[in-house]
Nucleic acid binder design. Structure first.
Length: 503
DNA sequence: TACGGAATAA
DNA sequence: TTATTCCGTA
C-alpha cells in the first residue's frame, strides 16, 4: 500500500453490518490490492458516524442513499489518497458496478443506489453473517422468502442428508423473511439482482473470498460435491440472524449450514448452489457446530433459488444441483412479456474520444479508418446488480486490524433479489438430473428471452453484451441479432431498459 | 443528475 | 482490474 495511505481501520462493531475479517482487508479486493469502492461504501454504511453522509435507505433492502455526495467523495478520496476526488468521479466508479451487478441505481431517487447482495455476498459468502451490532442498519429489509409451494423431493441418497437427521432450522430467520416476497411493486421492472451475471462476474466475486476461504476451509474448497464437508468457515459464536441486515436474514436459514463450502473457486459461484445436500453446518444459532435444518426452509430456499435462476437466467451453475431434485415449473415472476422476441437495436457506435479525435485529426472523415461498425445492443438489458461486501473506514490512515471476527454465517441471498415468486405454474424447470441450469437460463432479468434459442452454452453464461460483441466479432453470420439466439434476451440496452423502466 | 465511452494510472 | 479523469449526451 501506499505509504501513508494505508488504512484500514476496521470497523468496530458498532456500526452496522459486520463482515468477516477478510472483508476489511484491502487484500480482499479482487484484482486490486486496494480497497474497493463498494467495500468502502459498505464501510461507511456500517458506521454510525457517517450516517449523515450515507445511510441505508429505509424500506429498501440493500438500498442506500448518499446524503452528502461531496463528503462521501471526500472520504473516498481521502481513503484513496486522491484529493481530487469528487462525486462525479466517484459516481463513475459506482456506475462501473452496474455492469458488474454489484450495484444498481435506484431510479428516480437522487444519490440512491442499491447493492445487490445476492450477487456479492450470497453467492460468494454464503456463510457470512453480516449483522449489525448494536446499531441497526438503517435499512435492509429482510430478505424475501419464497413460498412454500415448492416441491422438494427427497434428497438423494448421496446427499448427506440422508445421513443426517432432519433437523430443524432455527426458524428465526424465516420470520424475518417474508417481507420481500411480495414486493413486486416497484421492483417489477427492476432487474433482478440475481441475474446470471456473467460467469466472470460471479467469479470475480468469488475471488473475494476464495483464497481466504480456501484457507479457512482448509483447502476443501474443491470438493465439489462432497457432501460431507461442512465448513464452519465463518462461524462465529454469537451470530444470530438480524432481520435488518441484508445479509443476515435468510429466508432459508439454513443457508449457511446447508451450503457449506461450495465456495470453492472451483465451483465458481456456486454458492448458491446446493451442491450437496444439507449437511450439518453452521447454524447461526448453533454457533457453528450443530447443524439442523428444516425441510421446509430448505424448500423455501430452493424455491427461491429456482426462481432466481429461472427468472434471472442465472448461470446454470447457480442452480442448485440436487440430484433428486425436481424442480417445479417456475413461474416465478412470470414475465409474460418475456416471450417477446428478443429485439435488439442497431446503432452506430458512439464517437468515442478516440474516434472523434481520429476523425478530427484525419482529413477524411468519411473514410473512417474502421468500417463503421454498428454497435449492436440488446434490446433489453437491465440493470445489473450485485452484491456487496464490507470495508472499513475512511481516512487515509488506517490500520488493518484484525477484525475479530465477525463472520459467520450468512444468509441467503438469492432472495434478496426478490426473485421470488414461488408459484410454479407449469414450466418444468430443469431436469433434475441433467442440467438444471437450463432452467436458469430463463428468467433473467430480461424480458424477452427466447426459450428455445439455441444458444451456445458459453454464450449462455456470457453477459449479453459480451455475447453480442463476440458475435459481432465472429462474423456476419453471427451478427444476426434478431434470431438465432444472438441475444435472445435483451431488449434495450441497459440504458434503454432503464429508460423504459423509468417510463 | 445520471450515464457511459475512452484513455490512463496503479 | 479497478478505479480515476474527462467529457459528451440525455
Amino acid at each position: 500500500m501506499k505509504a501513508g495511505c494505508s488504512i484500514v481501520e476496521k470497523p468496530e462493531g458498532g456500526g452496522g453490518y459486520q463482515f468477516p475479517d477478510w472483508a476489511y482487508k484491502t487484500e480482499s479486493s479482487p484484482g486490486s490490492r486496494q480497497i474497493q469502492l463498494w467495500h468502502f461504501i459498505l464501510e461507511l454504511l456500517q458506521k454510525e458516524e457517517f450516517r449523515h453522509v450515507i445511510a441505508w435507505q429505509q424500506g429498501e433492502y440493500g438500498e442506500f442513499v448518499i446524503k452528502d455526495p461531496d463528503e462521501v467523495a471526500r472520504l473516498w478520496g481521502r481513503r484513496k489518497c486522491k484529493p481530487q476526488m469528487n462525486y462525479d468521479k466517484l459516481s463513475r466508479a459506482l456506475r462501473y458496478y452496474y455492469n458488474k451487478r454489484i450495484l444498481h441505481k435506484t431510479k428516480g431517487k437522487r444519490f440512491t443506489y442499491k447493492f445487490n447482495f445476492n450477487k456479492l455476498v450470497m453467492p460468494n459468502y454464503p456463510f457470512i453473517n453480516i449483522r449489525s451490532s448494536g446499531v441497526v442498519p438503517q435499512s435492509a429489509p429482510p430478505v424475501p422468502t419464497a413460498s412454500s409451494r415448492f416441491h422438494f423431493p427427497p434428497l438423494d441418497t448421496h446427499s448427506p442428508t440422508s445421513d443426517m437427521q432432519p433437523g430443524h432450522f432455527s426458524a428465526g430467520p424465516l420470520a424475518a423473511s417474508g417481507q420481500e416476497s411480495g414486493n413486486g411493486t416497484d421492483r417489477k421492472a427492476e432487474l433482478p439482482e440475481l441475474d446470471d451475471g456473467p460467469a466472470a462476474d460471479w467469479r470475480r466475486g468469488v475471488d473475494l473470498l476464495s483464497p481466504r476461504n480456501a484457507v479457512a476451509a482448509g483447502g476443501i474448497g474443491h470438493q465439489k460435491r462432497k457432501p460431507d464437508i461442512m465448513l464452519p468457515l465463518f462461524t462465529r459464536p454469537g451470530m444470530y440472524p438480524d432481520p435488518h441486515s441484508p445479509f443476515a436474514v435468510s429466508p432459508l436459514p439454513g443457508r449457511g449450514g446447508v451450503l457449506n463450502v461450495p465456495i470453492s473457486p472451483a465451483l465458481s459461484l456456486t454458492p448458491t448452489i446446493f451442491s450437496y445436500s444439507p449437511s450439518p453446518g453452521l447454524s447461526p444459532f448453533a454457533g457453528g457446530g450443530c447443524f439442523s435444518f428444516n425441510p421446509e426452509e430448505m424448500k423455501h430456499y430452493l424455491h427461491s433459488q429456482a426462481c432466481s435462476v429461472f427468472n434471472y437466467h442465472l448461470s446454470p451453475r447457480t442452480f442448485p444441483r440436487y440430484p433428486g431434485l425436481a424442480v417445479p415449473p417456475l413461474q416465478c415472476q412470470g414475465h409474460p412479456e418475456e416471450s417477446a422476441p428478443f429485439s435488439i437495436k442497431l446503432q452506430p457506435p458512439p464517437a468515442g474520444r478516440k474516434n472523434r479525435e481520429r476523425v478530427e485529426s484525419s482529413e477524411e472523415p468519411a473514410a473512417a479508418p474502421v468500417p463503421p461498425r454498428i454497435k449492436v445492443e440488446p434490446a433489453s438489458d437491465k440493470d445489473p446488480e450485485s452484491l456487496g461486501q464490507a470495508a472499513r473506514e475512511e481516512g487515509c490512515s488506517r490500520e488493518e486490524g484484525a477484525v475479530p471476527g465477525r463472520t459467520a454465517e450468512e444468509e441467503k441471498g438469492a432472495v434478496f433479489a426478490r426473485p421470488a415468486a414461488p408459484v410454479w405454474p407449469s414450466a418444468p424447470i430443469g431436469a433434475p438430473s441433467e442440467e438444471p441450469l437450463e432452467v436458469a437460463e430463463h428468467g433473467e432479468d430480461r424480458p424477452g428471452r427466447e426459450p428455445s434459442a439455441p444458444e451456445r452454452k458459453e454464450d449462455a453464461l456470457m453477459p449479453p453484451k459480451l455475447r453480442l460483441k463476440r458475435r459481432w466479432n465472429d462474423g456476419p453470420e453471427a451478427r444476426e441479432p434478431s434470431k438465432s439466439g444472438a441475444a435472445p434476451w435483451r431488449g434495450p440496452g441497459p440504458r434503454g431498459l432503464a429508460a423504459a423502466a423509468d417510463a
